[in-house]
Design a protein around this nucleic acid. Sequence first.
DNA 1: ACCTGAACACCGTTCAAGT
DNA 2: ACCTGAACACCGTTCAAGT
Lengths: 232, 232
Amino acid sequence: MAAKRSGAQGKRSQRMGVEPPPQPNSEPALSLDRIVLTAVELLDAQGVDGLTMRRLADRLGSGVMSLYWHVDNKESVFDLALDSVLGYRGSPQIVGAQDWRTEIIDMLEDWRASMLRHPWSVSLLSSRALGPNILSRLELLGKTLSRAGVADADLNVAIWSLWNYLMGATITRTSFDLSGGDRAASQPRAGEPYPTIERSRLLCDDDWIGIFRKGLDALLVGLAPSQNRSLK
Amino acid sequence: MAAKRSGAQGKRSQRMGVEPPPQPNSEPALSLDRIVLTAVELLDAQGVDGLTMRRLADRLGSGVMSLYWHVDNKESVFDLALDSVLGYRGSPQIVGAQDWRTEIIDMLEDWRASMLRHPWSVSLLSSRALGPNILSRLELLGKTLSRAGVADADLNVAIWSLWNYLMGATITRTSFDLSGGDRAASQPRAGEPYPTIERSRLLCDDDWIGIFRKGLDALLVGLAPSQNRSLK
DNA sequence: ACCTGAACACCGTTCAAGT
DNA sequence: ACCTGAACACCGTTCAAGT
């Protein structure tokens, strides 16, 4: 299954300057980068089900089968599109200049925003390996926590907890967007079956970012390094 | 989009006893329940991509188009299968008998286990509305938190935080299972790019349940009601 | 090295029809 | 009320071939 790693030729490097000039009248040449970029456009516009090798080729002005020279199969298009969307254009201010808590909050909010800009990314994440951009973000998260004083023995728990929280929050958010009026539809069915969550208007509360921040604060309280306590 | 709620006839009620006896030599009659049950089997066996209206009909011994009398379309098969798998067969012991903290931990661990038993459910959740069984679990969660003393103003944050954490944890888990050796493949690429998470062996740590519990403890620390503090 | 069209084995769903 | 087959407009991918 995971064996066939042969087909994807690495080929984004433009050799050494000689570049045949692109004919101005036709589409630019096919390339991995262009394929991935267009795939993201298509996913943004049409969602996961909207990405089709045929439609992708149409947008690129090429034949369907031309894609397969650059790409193993449709799965790998998903993988590439997913990771491409999660690149972290680091915070401009010097890292470490501020409180570790706000550093982490900033990082996670940026992460959340990146995923919500491309809602399809959330549904892809549950079934795909972690690409380099995700790993970079995890690395940065780990480094920050470590510098903040989280013991090595507690580091994995802290990293995964924050990641889990983040992923769940974006899932919840996109799930509500995509299912649209259904939330409204299920809420007002008055009285009987769900008294507590109706009283608290759980499904009507749309202060997503506020809820995200408060919950994150709570989690950070529990994760914060203290002199005596370790996460037993 | 959400308008067409017409097609799905409610029809599981067996009228009043007269039931034509099922011919022992042929398949039992088609029914919504049987369709959903078989869909779950198929999803368990073949994953999300393995569920096909044609394959489903085959398993049921019927023509493809027969399904469409019981069901609006393939989407609704997904919705029904998802919710069917999340039913909570409540804890046998009387609720409220124990510490609220262990009550909640038990609930969430049961929830986690239910989803991991059907890994496809995780990837479906990000794009689908919340069915009645999910709402029931959220209600129970809310009730328990409320009884434990969480203020109404903090209730939604507490519920969603736990839910987010839970969803993220199961996503992470299934993502690692499905992508198989890729974790191993990305980890040993030694040295350079991800020093922190390699030092902590983040991607090799497979004590999933332990990590889940410890992170949950941390979150509960932050969410626990205290006399003075509210989640500001 | 890069691109192509024809062909294959699939899909979900509409429709008009059967009992 | 319940089930069906034929047909339509799609899919992803293999293959053999073109430049």
